[in-house]
Write a protein that binds this DNA or RNA. Sequence first.
DNA 1: ATATCACTTTACGTTGACGTAAGGTACACA
DNA 2: TGTGTACCTTACGTCAACGTAAAGTGATAT
Lengths: 147, 147
Amino acid sequence: MATDKWSVDDVTRQLGVTPRTLHYYEEVGLIPACARTAGGHRLYDQETIDKLTHILRLKEYLGYSLQEIRGILDAEDDIERLRMSYHSSEDQRERQVILDECAQSLDGIVRAIDDKLDRLSVMRRNFQERLDRCRQLQKESGVSEQS
Amino acid sequence: MATDKWSVDDVTRQLGVTPRTLHYYEEVGLIPACARTAGGHRLYDQETIDKLTHILRLKEYLGYSLQEIRGILDAEDDIERLRMSYHSSEDQRERQVILDECAQSLDGIVRAIDDKLDRLSVMRRNFQERLDRCRQLQKESGVSEQS
DNA sequence: ATATCACTTTACGTTGACGTAAGGTACACA
DNA sequence: TGTGTACCTTACGTCAACGTAAAGTGATAT
C-alpha cells in the first residue's frame, strides 16, 4: 500500500519526455488530471505512469496519433469497467454491445499489427538484399585494390 | 521501349495521393523534376512512379520523415552510381568510403526494422491477450444470458 | 470551335504535437 | 530563513507535410 507519488521531474527522467508533453497529454485528456501537492505541484501515481508508458509505445512503435491512441485507451477502459462490474451486470444487452465493440476494436488492432509486420518483413528482405549487394561490391572493390 | 508517360491524374489515382503531394515532393527534391508536355503539364515516367511507391512505403510502413527518406534515397543513389561506374573506378579510396557509408546506412535501416519487428511482436502478443480475455468475457456473458 | 476538364504557379492557411518565454508560486535544503 | 531550483499557468511560436484558393493556360471531346 505504498501508493507512491512522483514529481514531474521524476516522470520526465524515467520516460524521457518533457514536462510540456505531460501537460499536453493531460490537457487533451489522454491521462487523467493527477493529484497535487498543497501548493499545486503535480504528483503522478504508478497507474498513470503505466498508462503513459503504454501511450508512448503506441506512439513510437505503432505510429498511432494521439487521437487514435485515445480510441484504444477508451476501448481498454471499457473492458476494464466491464471486468470490474462483472457480477453487478445491470444491463446484459449493453454489456454485450460494449464487449462486441471492444472485441472488434482489439481485433482491428491485432490485424493492423499483423499487416504492419508483413509489410515490414517484405521491406526488411528488400533492404537486406540491397545490403548484400553493397557488401558484394565492397569485396570486389577490395580485391581489385589488392592487385 | 515504350517509355510511357503518365499524367498527374493517372499517378494520383494509382498511388492514392493528391497532386499537391507530387508537387511538394518535387519541390523539396525527393523526386526529380519530370518531363513536361509542350504546354507545361507534367509527365511522369515509370522510374519516378517506382520511386514514389518506394517513398510512400518508407513513409507509411516505416514511419520515416521525408528528410530521413531523402537520406535513404541518397544512399541508394550512391550505390547505383557506384554500380554503374564499376569499371571506370577512378578513385578507389573514394569508392571504398562511399561503399562503407552505404553499407552502414543500409545496415542501420535493417537493424531499425528488426527492432521494430521485435517491438511490434511484443505489442501483438499483448493485444492478443487482451482480445482473448475480452472473448472470454463475451462467452461468460453469453452463458449467463442463457439461464 | 467551344465547352469542359485537367493542369499550372503563387501563396497563404491548417493541423498535430509539442516548444518556449514570461511572470509568478512552491519546495528543499543549508 | 533565505536561496536556488522545480513547478505552475497562460499564451504565443514552430515545424513538417501538406490543404486550399485564385487566376490563368493546356488538353480534349463533341
